[in-house]
Simulated scan of single mutants.
Amino acid sequence: MTLEILTADSLAPLRHGFFTRKGGASSGIFAGLNCGTGSSDQTEIVAINRARVAEAMGVAADQLTGVHQVHSSDAVSITAPLDPKPKADGLVTATRGVALSVLTADCQPVLFADAQAGVIGAAHAGWKGAQAGILEATIDAMTDLGAARENIHAVIGPTISQRAYEVGPEFFDIFLDEDPENTRFFAGGDGDRMHFDLPGYGLMRLRAAGIASAEWTRHCTYFDPDRFYSYRRSVHHKDPDYGRLISSIVL
């Protein structure tokens, strides 16, 4: 099966993609393009999937690089793949041929580009990382490499939508304490439950950072199981594990 790669005009002409689960070698609950080395999927099968992504990105398999994601606000600047992977949730480079990547399964995958300066970035932004400042940290790391804030374009890929993201009152309080205006990212649910707009919150943070543009592809991971892995859906289905989607960009 052919890989399905979602792209955005604002990141052109740079090669990039938010990969769906289509076109992979994994089976069972991981069926498709599971690129999560931290999953319980077969190591050799994950390697095959990642090699297919690297080929689609036009790089050697060992040039598809990421970080050890920990829901932090840390972004690292790299010139080559690092081993071991640093604990971080954003990575940037001005080096050609190094494909930056992040893994997600409901959290926001965000790709960044200043094509004029030749600087790119990628971030894994769940609610913790987004609130802690990972999006701004990635932008700052790009400007340290020579990117101009007003020329940086950012795109949020497939992530969990507000309709699927039910949270409790303690979650609401965390965001209310940050800024009372964050109430606009919550909609009423059953009883004391609410629904949180993660991509809406991410877009607000990106736009407030003063970059050229920020958009969301408007794909929900939870409600499209044929195309996307979803951690929350796996919990609801009582699956023992779940696959990870990959998003990547290269100069």
Rank of each mutant, 00 (worst) to 15 (best):
S248A: 15
I139S: 14
R96W: 01
D89L: 11
D177W: 08
H237V: 01
A75G: 01
V98K: 09
E55M: 05
L3N: 08
L145R: 12
S230V: 00
C107V: 12
V119S: 12
S10D: 11
V76E: 02
F18D: 01
S40D: 05
T138I: 14
R244Q: 07
I211L: 13
S101K: 06
F30M: 02
C220K: 02
A94I: 05
Q116T: 15
G97Y: 06
D144Y: 04
R50T: 00
D226G: 09
F228E: 00
S247W: 00
A208E: 10
T7W: 01
G210M: 10
Q42N: 11
D197R: 05
P81I: 00
E150F: 06
D114Y: 09
A105I: 08
G191W: 01
M194I: 13
D9R: 04
R184Y: 03
Q63D: 10
L100A: 13
I78W: 05
G146A: 03
P199T: 00
G188M: 11
V53K: 08
H153M: 06
D192W: 01
S234D: 10
V98F: 03
G243D: 04
G189R: 07
L206H: 13
R52A: 15
N49D: 01
Q131W: 12
I5H: 07
D89M: 11
Q63M: 14
S77C: 09
I160T: 05
T104Q: 03
F186H: 11
I134L: 09
M1S: 14
F186P: 06
T95A: 11
F112Q: 08
A132P: 10
G146C: 04
Q162F: 00
Q131M: 15
G126N: 15
G58N: 02
R193L: 15
V235Y: 07
A8M: 04
Q116K: 15
G191C: 00
D74R: 12
H219P: 04
G90P: 09
P81H: 01
S27W: 05
G17A: 11
T20V: 01
D41K: 06
P109H: 10
G189C: 07
E166W: 07
G118F: 05
E44W: 03
